[in-house]
């Protein structure tokens, strides 16, 4: 009698496992979708970029300047100690170099002045400001 019970339980469990297969397939598909389509971004309260209606996707660049809410400058995620121009001197910058600036939206516009000054000194004419989509 006991053996029969075990057999019955096992069959029931097998049936349950089989009925779960379509659900698992969907979960796998969702997992693959989020892995491929999603982008993992570090979100920080200290760097909330301004909002715009621009459709131009952010391009890859060698030099990325970030200015956070505390007014600290980062070049390629490295904190700038001292002056920004000295720090940028480590990079070989030409007039064709594209610079992208991520600046906190609540900072005064004067926070961009050091960047504009350096870009002007080096003869770089193209500067881009990273923005978020309007939602």
């Amino acid at each position: 009698m006991k053996l029969l019970d075990i057999n019955h339980n096992s069959a029931r469990k097998n049936k349950l496992d089989d009925s779960m297969i379509p659900a698992i397939n969907i979960v796998f598909l969702l997992l693959i979708f989020f892995m491929l389509a999603g982008q993992i971004e570090a979100r920080s309260e200290l760097l909330q970029i301004p909002v715009s209606s621009s459709k131009t996707a952010l391009s890859e660049t060698r030099v990325e300047i970030k200015i956070d809410a505390n007014g600290r400058y980062f070049v390629n995620d490295q904190t700038v100690e001292g002056s920004l121009s000295e720090h940028l001197g480590k990079f070989v910058l030409t007039a064709e170099t594209a610079i992208i600036c991520h600046v906190h939206r609540d900072l005064p516009a004067s926070a961009l002045d050091p960047v504009l000054a350096i870009v002007g000194q080096l003869g770089i004419q193209q500067l881009s400001i990273a923005t978020a989509n309007q939602s």
């Binding site: 996707a57 002007g120 500067l127 400001i129 923005t131």
Partner: peptide
């Protein structure tokens, strides 16, 4: 993950 991709606006510096 986020689908809200970052955009950019291009400006030229006034020399």
């Amino acid at each position: 993950s986020t689908f809200n991709r970052t955009k950019q606006i291009d400006i030229t510096t006034a020399l």
